[in-house]
């Protein structure tokens, strides 16, 4: 059984394959730190107040040396490392989403300025909390944070502006849909209409597999068949729909329905496997 995981390409060491041992193990102390950070109670973090100048300074710290308006892949990875956001898994996707990234592992100054002012974020620990909150809510499906009784009084005590978070918590299905759709356009190279199947599989493994157990079977099918070259937008959208409609015993699937052929083939494959 192959193991799927998604990882932003590491540009510091020029590693592309998630199968390479380095990605996971290169900096064990960092990973430990990340774990430690995860178990932290957010309120323990030192709450720094949002300051636009600091936010900009933070951007400049990671910006490309030859293009001060852009954080490139190397800067992005450093940013993630420093904010203790794991590159493999959904966290880096969530960060890109929250910071309005247009391309994989790239952040523009304009988008950064806008996003940080909405989130009221100007430090790395704040960024970390933003991403972890959403990861808990949408990927790990933990119950949403409790809103304290009186908004106005306590708001200033929050590590960042949770306005967005509360709207996500209100309709987490819609929020997940947003993240899911965003991930496709992020991973899609500009002129192309599709993302290659390898990338798609990696994204599905971090976005859908943790939530929908059937998805890991779909991914096994895709890798076993090895005939699918790319995922188009329709397949991408329908995959989420499929996960939401069909359970692990294929209840909810209807062969007369307009599922993409890949999913029809998957169902046939699964049924014949069960039969034998």
């Amino acid at each position: 059984m192959p193991c799927f995981s998604f990882c932003f390409p590491s540009h510091i060491k020029h590693l592309h394959s998630d199968g390479d041992s380095d990605t996971g193990k290169q900096e064990p102390e960092k990973e430990n730190e990340a774990r430690a950070l995860k178990s932290h109670n957010p309120t323990v973090l030192s709450v720094t107040k949002y300051d636009p100048k600091q936010a900009l300074a933070l951007f400049m710290r990671y910006a490309d040396s030859d293009n001060p308006d852009l954080i490139g892949p190397e800067g992005f990875e450093m940013l993630c490392n420093d904010a203790q956001i794991l590159m493999d898994g959904a966290m880096a996707l969530i960060l890109s989403w929250q910071l309005d990234a247009q391309e994989m592992a790239k952040l523009t100054k304009d988008a950064w300025t806008k996003a940080t002012s909405v989130l009221k974020v100007s430090s790395l620990p704040q960024l970390n909390v933003v991403v972890r909150d959403i990861n808990d809510l949408l990927i790990l499906r933990r119950p949403p944070l409790q809103r304290s009784g009186n908004k106005n009084v306590k708001e200033s005590n929050e590590p960042y502006s949770r306005t967005r978070y509360w709207s996500y918590a209100e309709d987490s299905k819609k929020a997940f849909q947003e993240l899911y759709t965003f991930s496709f356009s992020l991973a899609k190279p500009q002129p192309s209409r599709n993302i290659d199947m390898e990338t798609a599989v990696a994204l599905w493994s971090v976005l859908l597999v943790p939530v929908y157990p059937l998805m890991s079977e779909v991914l096994t099918f895709i890798t076993e068949k090895a005939t699918f070259k790319a995922a188009n937008k329709d397949l991408w959208n329908m995959m989420l729909e499929f996960c939401q409609t069909v359970d692990t015993n294929l209840q909810g699937y209807d062969s007369d329905s307009a599922w993409p052929t890949l999913l029809d083939d998957f169902v046939t494959w699964k049924k014949s496997k069960q039969a034998s």
Binding site: K233, N237, A258
Partner: peptide, 23 residues
């Protein structure tokens, strides 16, 4: 179905808003 998929990809067709089965 494959032809429909090709046409969806080439954006001759799209699925309408909330109905999975309507093009």
């Amino acid at each position: 179905k494959k032809a429909i998929e090709t046409l969806l990809e080439k954006e001759f067709l799209e699925r309408t808003g909330n109905a999975r089965d309507t093009y």
